[in-house]
């Protein structure tokens, strides 16, 4: 099966834990880790399931519930905040019809907040999956989301 193949690409060492979890989550179209994933990793690395669960729940980028195809991470750090990230947050919420931590009904987007993305020179900024968008305005936000919606 496919998941086992992903896991087997890594050496059977505990320090591979985060890397394996990242890969499994990435391979899931709903961007999350299932109970089955956790058991698989625990068995592969010869760890108690509780140790894997412990790590997964510590890091904010891992999710145990299904998320959208695209994860929107709006930067909520002071430089972005000062540059008006709060007004973008309301624009995003309105445009998507969801609150932070929720997923749109069509399963396309999940809205999250993130700490600094390190692009403060173009604040306010957000990331959609691995793509960074800076100098955001509510208008630009709409254009960007429209592009993702078109691509599905």
């Amino acid at each position: 099966m496919e998941k086992l193949e992903i896991v087997r690409r890594f050496p059977r060492k505990r320090d591979q834990l985060l890397a394996i979890l990242h890969e499994l989550q990435r391979a899931n179209p709903r961007n999350y880790l299932t109970g089955e994933d956790l058991r698989l990793v625990a068995e592969y690395l010869d760890l108690p399931l509780s140790a894997v669960h412990d790590a997964v729940t510590f890091y904010s980028m891992f999710s145990l519930v299904p998320r959208g195809k695209h994860i929107i991470r709006l930067c909520d750090s002071p430089p972005c905040h000062l540059a008006g990230a709060w007004s973008l947050l309301s624009a995003l919420k309105e445009e998507l019809g969801i609150d932070v931590g929720q997923t749109t009904e069509d399963g396309l987007f999940t809205l999250e907040l993130t700490s600094c993305l390190g692009v403060c020179g173009v604040a306010p900024a957000m990331m959609i999956d691995d793509e960074v968008y800076g100098n955001l305005t509510p208008e630009r936000l709409k254009e960007i989301l429209a592009r993702y919606r078109e691509e599905g």
């Binding site: 505990r14 834990l17 890397a19 790590a55 510590f58 890091y59 904010s60 980028m61 891992f62």
Partner: peptide, 25 residues
């Protein structure tokens, strides 16, 4: 090695715990 969204991992002992595949405390 890649983090997974925990600011405290910038602290050296937390970072080491995280590399070892544990909670970054």
């Amino acid at each position: 090695r890649m983090g997974a969204g925990a600011f405290v991992c910038g602290e050296e002992t937390a970072l080491i715990a995280s590399i070892e595949g544990r909670r970054g405390e």
